[in-house]
């Protein structure tokens, strides 16, 4: 349920923290998640993304997840910066938190702008991020195009941790078309396979968004299945090298994000060496054929010669 609420926010207005008194200058709206709005703000010449919610409990639950992740390996550069409340001019108290601001594009726009050659790397970077989460005992949950930002040189960043769920619990937030349960492919209990399933749907979303949408609209609920998803993957030329990987992701046969990432990596590199080695056999085959023929000729000559000698 998207909580839609009006905010008296104009460019240049200032959000002040009630507890820690941080001053944040509003630049513009970045986006809207299920639990609130994300705004680009500046403080001391530094950009931040500020998420402001209406429901203190929902937002706090998200902050707790971020904090738990910050204490694990995900903390390369702490994602969560500040947590506070803002008293609006109308006297309403709204909870907010600030995060590192990542400038970039969504995956689909990135591939259009920079070329589809980037796809294997984006996939790998994303799978690695997911793998780190899984190792820390969490899943991302609501993996979808809107929640991923690609920065420079294919750097992938997950944003909006509203769906982040501890492994073993019920997935907190999800989007139907990316949801394993929606496609009759398993439960909504948080496990690494849940994220990997969504990742596989994301691949379809990137290269066949219209067909995917149509499929979900036309199929009867009981007919949604791996087979239908795989059928669509097979019709998508960009995914041809990944068909086996996708099937494994859809059926939940990767143990965790790390295994899925290394399988993906193998494919990404194999594909390049395969493309090279494909050319070699052609001339090799010709050479072998020539040498075989000449061997045959010389052998038969030899036999003939031998027979003649016998005479």
């Amino acid at each position: 349920m998207t909580t839609s609420f009006k905010l008296p926010l104009k460019k240049g207005s200032v959000i002040v923290g009630k507890w820690k008194h941080g001053h944040y200058r509003v630049e513009r709206l970045l986006g809207e998640g299920a639990n609130g709005k994300v705004i680009l703000v500046s403080k001391d010449w530094q950009w931040y993304a500020l998420k402001i919610g209406q429901d203190a409990v929902d937002l706090q639950s998200e902050i707790n997840a971020l904090k738990a992740l910050a204490s694990t390996s995900m903390a390369r550069d702490s994602y969560l910066k500040d947590v506070d409340d803002w008293v609006t001019p109308q006297g309403k108290e709204l909870p907010f938190y600030t995060m590192r601001y990542v400038k970039g594009l969504d995956m689909s726009a990135y591939l259009t702008q920079h070329g589809e050659d980037w796809f294997p790397l984006l996939g790998l970077n994303l799978l690695r991020s997911l793998g780190e989460l899984h190792q820390a005992g969490w899943i991302f949950g609501d993996l979808k195009l809107e929640n991923i930002i690609v920065g420079q040189y294919g750097d992938v960043e997950l944003i909006d941790f509203g769906g982040a769920t501890q492994i073993g619990k019920g997935v907190k937030q999800f989007t139907e078309i990316y949801d394993r349960g929606y496609w009759n492919c398993g439960s909504r209990t948080a496990d690494a396979q849940y994220d990997l399933f969504s990742f596989a749907v994301l691949c379809l979303q990137l290269f066949a968004p219209r067909k995917l949408h149509q499929l979900s609209k036309e199929l009867l609920p009981q007919n949604r299945s791996i087979e239908e998803l795989m059928e669509l993957a097979k019709e998508t030329p960009q995914l041809a090298p990944y068909l086996k990987w996708l099937e494994q992701a859809f059926s939940g046969s990767f143990k965790h994000g790390k295994e899925a990432a290394s399988a993906w990596r193998m494919l990404a590199h194999q594909r390049r060496s395969l493309a090279k080695s494909k050319k070699t056999p052609r001339w090799l085959k010709v050479m072998i054929a020539i040498s075989l023929i000449s061997l045959g000729i010389s052998a038969s000559l030899y036999v003939l010669d031998y027979a003649g000698l016998l005479k």
Partner: peptide, 21 residues
């Protein structure tokens, strides 16, 4: 819950999430 400072709120919400589950 809103009247609690953010750190305390975090603890309370953790318990609530656990109960929700």
């Amino acid at each position: 819950i809103e009247a609690l400072p953010p750190e305390k709120r975090g603890e309370v919400v953790k318990v609530m999430d656990e109960l929700t589950e």
